[in-house]
Simulated scan of single mutants.
Amino acid sequence: MAPERARHHRFRSAIGLFLLAPLIGEFLLGNQPVTALPSVFLLAPLYGGGALLVREAARRAGRGWPTMILLGAAYALVEEGLVDQMLWNPHYGGFDLGAAYAGFRVPLLDTSVQLLQDVLTMHTVWSICVPIALVEAFARDGDRTRPWLGLPGLSVTALVFAAGSGFLALAQVESEDFTATPAQFAGAGLVVAALITAAFLCRPPGARHGTGRRPPAPWAVGALSFAATSAYWGREYLPDGVPAVVPVIGWAVLLAAVLVPCVRWARSERWSGAHRTGLAGGALLTYAWVGFEQGRYLDVSRATGLIGGAVFTAGALVLLAAAARAGTESDARSGARSGADRVPGSPPPLV
């Protein structure tokens, strides 16, 4: 790819991630109706800026997905702690969160364990990792692991993220008439700093090898992702009276059920872009059906909510199909180049 064309492609990827993150995190989820679509530009500095900063920081440091996951968790606490303050507001958004999350509490953060699990899951998975994985599926000629922005672009992104976060934080204080205590802000800040430090202590990704467990087909990885993320949202339908410890333990079991096999599969040379797209796609489809459920609570007519859910679901399906096709073509090109470079009788390349 010519340098100028490659530069334009990387810029388009950055813009795509900037806009896709809020579309998934708010609109596909059903938190915002289709009639509020122009507000994506108000949400993009926080969601899109955060996702882009996470991706660029990890890739510029030569790190991989463990770093991005930990940075995504840090972003989750920034958004729902330092910006929205939902972690501590018992009446956030007009809902009785104090009663809904009345179980075990995390001492340092002074918030509910289950609320913390929800915040970390939704933002780490759907606000950060899913958009990054889908946009990276379209990357060409090694751009998947390269930075897309230079230092000027990265600086602008950081400023946009900071300004957008500050604007939304002030708007939330005014609309919610709630401000957390200095101790709560300090606790969240300490955990965010710890997560960022841990993210960059992760070792850079090494060469994959044949000793890792052979992964199943990409569609099976996607089915696992869809089943696990749907089960996570399924706890919304648990009957009243279920002990608070049950969903808390269930969350940990689901997390292990996904992470343990995926870590083993990712060590194999057969782990490909199609598998990463499958993981992201399964979670994306979960948000599609959840969005229809969430749409019932929007301040619009039921018909408008259903139309919006259908529009965003159709968009998600088109995006997923395009990402899967682009990822498969990229894997084929990489395999062809690796095969051409191999000496007859040599082992498969470590990629």
Results as ranks from 00 to 15, higher is better:
residue 232 Y to T: 15
residue 284 L to E: 02
residue 293 E to L: 11
residue 145 T to F: 05
residue 288 A to T: 08
residue 110 D to N: 10
residue 202 C to F: 02
residue 27 F to G: 01
residue 307 I to V: 15
residue 32 Q to C: 08
residue 316 A to M: 04
residue 342 R to G: 08
residue 329 E to C: 07
residue 147 P to F: 10
residue 147 P to M: 10
residue 339 G to T: 09
residue 303 A to Y: 07
residue 266 A to F: 08
residue 88 W to V: 13
residue 300 V to E: 08
residue 19 L to Q: 03
residue 307 I to L: 15
residue 283 A to C: 03
residue 54 V to I: 14
residue 175 S to M: 07
residue 203 R to A: 15
residue 128 I to C: 02
residue 36 A to G: 09
residue 319 L to Y: 03
residue 140 R to A: 06
residue 100 A to P: 00
residue 187 G to F: 11
residue 173 V to M: 14
residue 38 P to I: 13
residue 280 A to R: 04
residue 330 S to Y: 00
residue 15 I to N: 01
residue 282 G to H: 08
residue 237 Y to T: 12
residue 285 L to C: 04
residue 351 V to E: 11
residue 270 R to W: 13
residue 35 T to Q: 11
residue 223 A to S: 02
residue 293 E to I: 10
residue 348 P to E: 14
residue 254 L to Q: 03
residue 137 A to Y: 01
residue 164 G to V: 11
residue 13 S to F: 01
residue 114 Q to W: 02
residue 271 W to V: 14
residue 252 A to D: 01
residue 70 L to C: 02
residue 204 P to C: 11
residue 78 V to H: 09
residue 69 I to G: 04
residue 82 L to Y: 03
residue 183 A to T: 14
residue 137 A to N: 04
residue 23 L to M: 02
residue 133 A to Y: 01
residue 131 P to K: 12
residue 130 V to R: 03
residue 32 Q to N: 09
residue 257 A to N: 00
residue 124 T to L: 10
residue 36 A to E: 10
residue 233 W to I: 05
residue 183 A to C: 12
residue 343 V to Y: 04
residue 226 F to N: 00
residue 264 R to T: 06
residue 11 F to Y: 04
residue 38 P to N: 09
residue 149 L to A: 03
residue 6 A to R: 12
residue 253 V to R: 03
residue 65 W to L: 13
residue 280 A to F: 01
residue 190 L to N: 07
residue 221 V to M: 12
residue 320 L to S: 06
residue 15 I to L: 12
residue 39 S to W: 01
residue 88 W to H: 13
residue 198 A to N: 04
residue 31 N to S: 12
residue 343 V to T: 14
residue 146 R to F: 08
